[in-house]
């Protein structure tokens, strides 16, 4: 993939994540802080499907943006073909793991399997 395509995805995920995290924060403001962190209210969020969907999207956006950012930092620190290849595949792998594990949590909780 060309670097410009990757960077368009990088900027796009950042903008979308900022917008969705803002919605998430606004939802939190409907309750006071302590209340919003109570077990029942957290579970209720996951079980409200549109909200759970939004959390899933935030998870994907932040993982893509974060792990690409990490790739960029690492290839700026050290160069070399094999190092850069392992960084790229390592970041893609780590990103997939984070998304899978996070999605599992969101899925199971929204299905009521806690």
């Amino acid at each position: 993939m060309r670097e410009s395509v990757i960077m368009k995805i990088h900027y796009g995920t950042a903008l979308a994540a900022v917008a969705l995290v803002a919605v998430h924060v606004l939802f939190r403001l409907t309750q006071n802080f302590a209340e919003s962190l109570e077990y029942e209210s957290v579970i209720a969020n996951y079980q409200f499907l549109p909200y759970a969907g939004m959390l899933e999207i935030i998870l994907i956006l932040l993982s893509i943006h974060g792990f690409n950012g990490l790739r960029v930092i690492l290839i700026e620190l050290k160069q070399g073909r094999s190092f850069e290849k392992s960084v790229t595949y390592g970041c893609i792998g780590a990103m997939a793991l984070v998304i899978l594990y996070g999605s599992r949590t969101i899925f199971l909780t929204s299905m009521g399997m806690t």
């Binding site: 060309r2 670097e3 410009s4 960077m7 960029v72 290839i75 700026e76 160069q79």
Partner: peptide, 9 residues
């Protein structure tokens, strides 16, 4: 310049 060590760095 559209390379992993090009303009985006």
């Amino acid at each position: 310049i559209d390379d992993s060590h090009g303009i985006w760095r």
